[in-house]
Structures are given as C-alpha cells and as structure tokens.
Simulated scan of single mutants.
Amino acid sequence: MQSNVGLIIEEKAVSIGNFLVGRLLPFRQKRAVGPFLFIDHMGPACLEEHQNLDVPPHPHIGLSTLTYLFDGAIFHRDSMGNAIEIKPGEVNWMTAGKGVVHSERTPEYLRTKDKFLHGLQIWIGLPKELEQCEPAFSHFDKEEIPVWEENGVTYKLIAGELKDIKSPVPVHSRLYFVEIKTKSSQKVTIGDQLFGEVGMYVLNGSVKIDNTDYGSKQLLIAQNASLCAFETNGETTLYLFGGEPFDEERFMYWNFVNSDKTILEKAKENWENQNLEAFPKIPDDDKEFVPLPKPKFNN
C-alpha cells in the first residue's frame, strides 16, 4: 500500500469447537480495523467422514456476524428461527443486537462423507445507538453480490460500499469488504474509493508494496486508506476491509461486544444462568450449549 503498511499481523491458530482456524483480529497491537472487530480464517481443511464442524449454540450481543465460504457448507440455526445452509459465494449476515443464539454445523447430508471447509467468519461492531437493537438475519445468494471487472482485475463487493456500488447486505455503518482477484500481475490503485481505516488479507498469491512482497496468511493494516495501491504477483486473491471507526471504544468478552462493560457483565450473567428471555433456545438445536468461559476482559 505504497509505503503505507503500518502493521503486519501473522495469522495465528486457535480452536473453535472441534475445528482449527487462523485468527487475524483482534490482535494485541490492533483491536479493530474500522468497525471490523474479529476475523477468523477457517481452513482450508479436508474433513473425513467422521469429522464435522460442530459449534453448538452460543450467544452474541452488540455486533453483526458475516460468514463467507470459499468451499464447503455450513448449516446455520439461530434463536430467531432461521435455519439455512450457507454455500460458497453466499453471505450470511446476522445482527445480534441485544442478544441472539446460533449454532454452526456440518449439514446432515455431509456428516458421513469426506468434505472440504474453507471460509471467513467476521464480526462487525454496531453503532452505539444500535448495540441493543432487536436481532435480525439475512441471507444472500452469490448472484446477488455485485461483481465487476476493470483492467484485468475482478472485484466482488461482499458488504458495504465503494463509490457508486453498494452491496445488498444491510450493514449499519460505513464500511467495505471487497474481494479482489487477478489471474496475472496487475497494478491496483483503489485508495480513492476507500475511507476510514483499511486492512488487506492475502488469501492466496502475493502482493508487492513498495518493492516488498507479502504472501498469504498475513494481514496488512494501512496507515492511510487513500494511499492504497499495490501490485499483485500473478494469480492472487485478496480482501480489503475497513471503514469508519467508532468514536467509542468497544469492549469484548468472548462472544459479547459492547461499548458499556456493565452490559457485557449482564450478558455473561444471563448466559451463565441460561436466561431464556435474554437468550432463547434454538429450535431443533436446543440440547447443548457452549458454557461461559472464565477469563477476564480482553481490554
């Protein structure tokens, strides 16, 4: 990003349920990029017939989740009654608001077969006035997501806005999450379309910025979004994400996000006590749940 790389974050391995993922955000030196608070890179993994993704019912408050798959399938269920399979190129968008419970599992028809799983799971903070809003859910087929090509570069606007193009995903603040693909070396100058803070995640291939090559499993944070320019080194897939940061600090405990720690404490208490008014059960997936972990605040 044209002498503009302020921070390089290496992907680090963590576990969710019985699945190993690469965690990109949050990081000690950088807690958020614009409204983006959390990014997990799932896979790529080949799961055998006895291996499945099983993340039992767990709660969220104060954020929206975005699930985007490159390969495989995940079945989403939530306490609002939604039950839907997400496949590659589709977008699941769930706004937790004051509280929601969901589970993520391998679909039934794949549970006794070999399968692949690869994708991104992202948390995006909510504006302060919406942190306690009613939960909501949207699903978008891949044909609904804007895709265009310019000068040998293919763009896909998964969420948010770039100039006069807008994704149908109902985001709650100014942001962008865009996929960029090239089949050969290309120069990309996109800074005039960006705003706020910007991060770059190179999924495969590599990019050259100020005569330095950066490869996959690295998250690059720009110092100035308006200077975002780079060159891809051949066949490359990368993601740019970011937007306007919030004025207030966001605190995070486990799956709970809020600008008010007292609300986090109440959410912890409600989940530990299985308060069904705050966190209803999921239809057809109500036999287990992920218990509240015990560590202190991350902030």
Rank of each mutant, 00 (worst) to 15 (best):
N4S: 05
I8V: 15
I9T: 11
E10G: 13
K12G: 05
K12A: 10
A13F: 08
S15N: 10
N18G: 15
F19I: 07
L20H: 06
G22T: 05
L25G: 03
F27M: 11
R28Q: 15
R28H: 15
G34W: 02
P35M: 03
D40Q: 07
P44S: 04
L47S: 01
E48I: 09
H50G: 05
N52T: 15
N52P: 09
V55Y: 02
P56D: 06
P56V: 12
P56G: 05
P56C: 04
H58L: 14
H60I: 06
S64W: 07
T65E: 09
L69V: 08
A73E: 15
F75T: 14
H76P: 02
N82D: 14
E85C: 11
E85Y: 11
P88L: 05
E90W: 11
V91S: 06
V91P: 01
W93K: 03
M94A: 08
T106H: 09
T106R: 06
P107D: 12
K113T: 12
F116G: 04
F116L: 13
L120M: 07
L126E: 05
E129G: 03
L130E: 12
Q132N: 10
P135F: 01
H139G: 02
E144H: 07
E144R: 15
E149W: 09
V153T: 07
I158C: 07
I158W: 01
L162G: 04
L162I: 13
K163V: 12
I165D: 09
S167Q: 01
E179F: 04
I180F: 02
I180M: 00
I180D: 03
K181W: 09
K183N: 15
S185G: 12
Q186S: 13
K187I: 07
I190Q: 08
G191R: 00
D192Q: 14
Q193N: 11
E197Y: 04
L203G: 03
G205R: 05
N211C: 04
N211V: 01
D213T: 14
Y214T: 02
K217V: 04
L219V: 05
N224H: 11
L227C: 05
A229E: 11
F230Y: 15
N233V: 08
G234C: 11
L238E: 00
L238V: 00
Y239A: 09
G242D: 12
G243Y: 00
F246P: 04
R250N: 03
F251Y: 15
Y253E: 01
Y253I: 01
Y253G: 00
Y253K: 05
N255V: 11
F256C: 00
T262L: 10
I263C: 05
L264W: 03
A267K: 00
K268L: 08
N270V: 01
Q274D: 08
L276W: 02
A278S: 11
I282P: 03
I282Q: 02
D284R: 14
K287Y: 14
E288F: 13
F289M: 13
F289A: 08
P291A: 08
P293C: 06
K294M: 08
K294V: 10
K296L: 13
F297M: 15
